[in-house]
Design a protein around this nucleic acid. Structure first.
Length: 378
RNA sequence: GGGAGUGCGCCGGAGUAGGAGAGCCGGGCCAGACUGUAAAUCUGGUGUCUUUGACUGAAUAGGUUCGAGUCCUAUCACUCCCA
């Protein structure tokens, strides 16, 4: 197997690591945050801005959503997702496993797979592990995810156990289909398995051991950040990280707040994705170097200071909080665009800073110093 | 100058053929929520106060009535018509 991941440094006082992940469309420096672009677009942010202002190295797409619209025929005819959305850096697609959780009212789970009723037109679609791989082959992301069941919180132990074993069986079917097919566009894809087990340590251990035994190049942790308290999330992450191989990247799916990310990095996580920076941006909550800003709040009406003077994004340095508030209150699309740029550039700067401090051995002290400003109001 | 009509809360609308209201719908405004995106969405608040409750309130001032946002008179404002 090709060596995809190289670790450059580990933090002396935590499990944090800094590394490089090699992918067909380029290298990724970890720890990394991956902006979510469900429907082939990071909402309200253009690809050029993702490169120039955010510094995004890899973005996400979603199998379920892209399959329903525009459909794999369109993406295939375009020459794959990278050509279709004109993003030539790495892409990761989620398998649809999260939709098993989020669209729980219109799906039925069986051993064979999941029957979804489309949220767009009500039509029925069956996602099996094999089908999820087939679609992801056609979409063409660098990293594709195993089809799993993301269980809700709270989740009864009996159900969590049954679900975890099914996810494991689904993983084997995903691996089998993955091994008997190949990338549709001339480059190799990576398949990542997902640890489940809800909030039960013994299940998490069992699942982590199973996933580790598959010996895949990237290992993911799913089923967290679904409403459980942070301490529980950290506890499960810690349990799993102790078992997953250290020499491979660990991807904590769906996490999280800036504080969640730093804490999880210290537990040994290398990759993150989350809708929070983009969704919160569209809903008027900004993460800035001075703390959290509810941009709709009246206190910003006459604040003509830069949105974030320390932002790597020129947009945030050149426009004022008062102007952004005006745009957001007026419902102007530019408000969502500038807000999303601010939040994503903040997240990417955060993980870049984390990497720098891991490399020079000061991660833990830096983390302790910066943590308060990540959670307090500006 | 004459006639007709309409007046409530930040705004617009609905409604009330003498008995319920700090009240309905929408907007605005003020807050809050959001974690592998059915989310540019959703929730709450929006007269005053000493807030599990009380008080004031239907243009303004009177009147009729057991009881008036509703009926009557005057005034004011706005709209329309005539001159």
């Amino acid at each position: 197997m090709i060596d995809h991941f190289k670790i450059h440094a580990t933090d002396p006082s935590s499990s944090a690591r800094a590394g490089t992940l090699h992918l067909p469309h380029g290298d990724i420096e970890t720890p990394i945050f991956m902006p979510v672009g469900t429907a082939g677009t990071v909402k309200a942010v253009h690809q050029q801005e993702l490169k120039d202002q955010v510094g995004a190295q890899i973005i996400l797409g979603n199998t379920y959503h892209l399959y329903l619209r525009p459909g794999t025929d369109v993406i295939k005819a375009a020459g794959g997702i990278h050509k279709f959305n004109n993003w030539d850096r790495p892409i990761l697609t989620d398998s649809g496993g999260y939709q098993v959780y989020s669209l729980s009212q219109q799906r039925k789970i069986k051993e064979e797979g999941v029957k979804f009723r489309s949220h767009i037109d009500g039509s029925l679609h069956v996602f099996t592990p094999e089908f999820a791989i087939d679609i992801q082959r056609l979409i063409g992301a660098d990293i594709i995810m195993a089809f799993d069941e993301c269980t809700p919180y709270p989740c009864e132990e009996k159900y969590a156990t049954r679900s975890m074993h099914m996810t494991h069986r689904w993983l084997d079917r995903c691996v089998a289909r993955f091994n008997e097919t190949e990338g549709a566009y001339g480059y190799d894809q990576i398949l990542a398995p997902i640890v489940q087990g809800s909030t039960y340590p013994h299940l998490r251990r069992q699942s982590a051991e199973y996933i580790a035994s598959r010996d895949m190049p990237i290992n993911a942790i799913g089923g967290l950040s679904v409403g459980e308290p942070d301490v529980e999330m950290y506890s499960m992450t810690s349990v799993v990280c102790d078992i997953l191989p250290k020499e491979k990247p660990r991807y904590l799916m769906g996490v999280g707040t800036p504080a969640n990310i730093l804490e999880s990095i210290s537990l040994g996580i290398d990759m993150f994705d989350c809708v929070l920076p983009t969704r919160n941006a569209r809903h008027g909550l900004l993460y800035t170097s001075r703390g959290i800003v509810h941009i709709r709040n009246k206190k910003w009406q006459q604040c003509h200071e830069p949105i974030d003077p320390l932002s790597p994004s020129s947009t945030s340095r050149e426009h004022s909080l008062a102007y952004l508030r005006h745009l957001v209150i007026s419902g102007e699309p530019l408000g969502a665009m500038i807000s999303s740029l601010q939040n994503l550039s903040f997240y990417l700067q955060l993980v870049r800073d984390a990497r720098i401090h891991i490399l020079d051995g000061t991660f833990s002290t830096w983390k302790a110093a910066i943590l308060p400003t990540l959670t307090q109001s500006a």
